[in-house]
Amino acid sequence: MRLFSKIFQVGLATEPLPPGGADVVRLLHEVDARVRRLFGRAVAVRQVDAGSCNGCELEITGLTSPVYDSERFGIHFVASPRHADMLLVTGPVTRNMAVPLLKTYEATPAPKLVVAVGDCARTCGVFQGSYAVAGSVDQIIPVDVFVDGCPPEPTDILRGILAAIGRR
């Protein structure tokens, strides 16, 4: 019972609009029409950690928290690429993860999108040139949108996801 009184005391934790929200809202309205055609405002995301330091993962987890609550945009995370419309790839692609990443891409039914999250995904970051790294994400699979930052904020990731949907 204490749990429920707590729930009612806290009320709605989701921020009405994310920081820098006007931007996102405009983007949201802008892509809404196109999104409806492609995904009907329901985007299933499969996250792939291709060798990240897990900094980006922490921020991605933040997306599903009550504060950012990506679910209200119809974005939710799924367990299998078969269910997914979008791959959210983090980290430089290590040698061990290159084939799995490719297989994940193959396992995803069309139409599909790829969002590469974090600086490492674009440039391999501090891991650049390491013998263990196969390259950036776009060297392995086609990438639709890069989200910069080390790590990027949840808002940035959200913006990236929405942008990717808008590009199709």
Binding site: L12, T14, E71, R72
Partner: peptide, 19 residues
């Protein structure tokens, strides 16, 4: 709502099925 989230609207599953 019980998790203090705004959440997806109740008709979200229709969108998912349609997709």
């Amino acid at each position: 709502r019980l998790q203090n989230r705004r959440g997806a609207p109740a008709w979200q599953p229709y969108r998912e099925l349609g997709k």
